[in-house]
Amino acid sequence: MKKYTYTDKKDTRSGFGAGLHEAGKRNENVVALCADLVGSLKMDAFIKDFPERFFQVGIAEANMMGIAAGLTIGGKIPFTGTFANFSTGRVYDQIRQSIAYSGKNVKICASHAGLTLGEDGATHQILEDIGLMKMLPGMTVINPCDYNQTKAATLAIMEHEGPVYLRFGRPVIPVFTPEDQKFEIGKAWMVNEGTDVTIVATGHMVWRAIQAGEELEKLGIDAEIINIHTIKPLDEEAILKSVKKTGCIVTCEEHNKFGGLGESVARFLTSTYLAPQEFVAVNDSFGESATPDQLMTKYKLDPSDIVAAAQKAMARKSK
């Protein structure tokens, strides 16, 4: 198992804030909008340096999505910022008609996704957003795994023409990917090569998959771990190549098992290469109030849950 270490722990939303600030420096067409959550989205540096390119829309997310769509007419590249719940479920039809169907170059940037939002509870912990967004034709869906990757992804989506959903979160987690990485949309990142089981993970679950890989190694299991930061378009080639080698797969996501990464992988594999698949995901449930760590344990998203799923998937391989 390749050794991963970290010296720093940061939140992925701060990676977004840093990426947005850098994007603003690199391209004067970049504009940003926020629905009364500037501090939570870490947009302060952008606002300080580019006040004329920032729009505070107040608590009015539907209007924000429409204004963002309008700003693209004239060549602006709008980044909207609010919590994941208010970035998707609350404004689904606005995104569908004014952004996705209209083919507008809007970057929907969503913080506080998943259970790790913590104490605010289920009203704010959306676990359905990946599904909602990936169903929209032409929408790119990205869920990076740490600060550095989120910053790199923010810069990459600026260069990409078309609507993007960028999902990140609130908790501080290890920074273990390279600082100067090049982020390629739709290209999986090989975390660890192995032969016994494929573990694909997205977002906060990638570090947990690495921890699980270390545990599996102690059990004599050689796990291949792949970071799928882009859920749509899915890197089917990387998944197929790995599963042909290992013969089974575990998908890991901080999202409902319905509509997430796991379903995308299953849809692809059922029509190409049948292999046992286990899902580490929230089991069709809303979240609740507690600390992020308590919630990840209760909803079975811990490294130990990934280990158990890997063993189960391996046991189902035909002898």
Binding site: V31, E52, R53, F55, A62, N63, M64, M65, G66, I67, A68, A69, G70, L71, T72, I73, G74, G75, K76, P78, D93, Q94, R96, Q97, S98, Y101, S102, K104
Partner: peptide, 27 residues
């Protein structure tokens, strides 16, 4: 046609966005 419309209530927001883009550009 610069935006889809039909699902109601969305057009004014889009028009405002386009108006803001013109302001940024000094158009």
């Amino acid at each position: 046609v610069r935006i889809a419309s039909g699902s109601l209530g969305q057009g004014l927001s889009v028009a405002i966005g386009a108006a803001l883009a013109k302001k940024i550009d000094g158009d």
